[in-house]
């Protein structure tokens, strides 16, 4: 299958774009020859050559090339590049665990129809996933404010919520697929010849599912990215947030800053100031769009492979 995928130029372009972004995100200080702490520091004011203050944040793209700065004077471009690795890795991890959990749960008892999960799936059709994740995340943050927990634990719980939100629909997909495979004649024969369940799953069911699994994995990554962007707008940040007070003494303005630097956090942090600094929110959104486009290219490639496989 991998060899076939290599013959799909679009899949290769998508894959190269994502790996390139990931590598660039890890090594950008040396590649661009800039100091990491220097380029990500807070810039209170902008000075001209003679040391006079000429502007306060947010700076426009013309003042601070290449893409302007946010409300705190941080470079949006460097932030977005630095956040790429967190965003991509979180999305990949969550999608992977969604697939693993749902396959695992389905294989525990492939013949059952999981009626209560089916109920949840039926209900979630009408509720946007972002709302579902929001009501859970909000309760988690409430709990955290009452009884503080460590950042690691918080991130784990948040990831578990993001994983859990996607699992029920996947289980119903997998149980349908696996039941169809188990009903095939050669599987019945294998069982009749006395092979163990584990052997059949390992040798027959999983290989037959594998291409489907890769396709679903890529689709799940896209869905996770969209969900993360939505949650970012709702000011739910993965890794929690710190409250910083901006504004003057007569009108204090508490602003939540995400601690992890992923794109959804950048969007959420700048969302309230959308009219003052449009570039601060359009940049991460464009990155999201490009990443999703690259993933869609890969998905298209896999689908082409499946079609040629069939014919």
């Amino acid at each position: 299958m991998i060899i076939k995928l290599l013959k799909q130029p679009q899949a290769i372009i998508g894959f190269l774009f994502i790996t390139g972004l990931l590598v660039f995100s890890f090594y950008w200080p040396s590649l661009l020859d800039v100091d990491k702490t220097e380029s990500l520091k807070l810039q209170d004011f902008l000075y001209d050559d003679e040391g006079r203050i000429i502007d306060a944040p947010p700076y426009s793209p013309s003042q601070v090339p290449p893409l302007g700065s946010d409300m705190f004077g941080k470079h949006i471009f460097y932030q977005a590049i630095d956040g790429a690795k967190y965003t991509i890795l979180i999305a990949l991890g969550i999608a992977l665990f969604r697939i693993l959990f749902s396959v695992g749960i389905t294989l525990l008892n492939p013949r059952s129809s999981f009626s209560f999960l089916n109920d949840i799936v039926q209900a979630t059709l009408y509720l946007p996933t972002a709302i579902l994740a929001y009501i859970l995340m909000n309760s988690l943050i409430m709990k955290q404010s009452m009884e503080p927990m460590s950042t690691i634990k918080l991130i784990m719980l948040q990831c578990l919520i993001l994983i859990g939100v996607g699992v029920p629909p996947l289980i119903s997909t997998f149980s349908r697929e696996i039941r169809a495979i188990l009903n095939k004649d050669y599987i019945t024969n294998t069982f009749a010849l006395g092979s163990k369940k584990v052997y059949v799953y390992h040798k027959h069911v999983l290989p037959e599912l594998s291409t489907k699994l890769v396709l679903l994995f890529a689709q799940q990554v896209v869905q996770t990215l969209i969900l993360m962007a939505h949650l970012g707008v709702l000011a739910i940040f993965i890794g929690g947030s710190a409250i910083v007070v901006l504004g003057d003494i007569f009108s204090p303005m508490p602003v939540a800053i995400p601690l992890a630097g992923e794109w959804a956090g950048i969007i959420g942090m700048n969302f309230a100031k959308i009219k003052a600094a449009p570039w601060a929110i359009l940049t991460p959104l464009t990155f999201f769009a490009l990443l999703i486009f690259a993933l869609n290219l890969i998905i298209q490639g896999i689908q082409n492979c499946l079609e040629t496989h069939k014919s």
Partner: peptide, 27 residues
């Protein structure tokens, strides 16, 4: 039949936050 499963599903979802994180998190 479909309506019954939707109602059960929504019931489960609406009590899920209280179930997972304790009732005191609900304002």
């Amino acid at each position: 039949k479909r309506l019954r499963s939707i109602i059960i599903g929504i019931l489960i979802i609406s009590i899920l936050p209280a179930l997972l994180f304790g009732t005191n998190t609900q304002v």
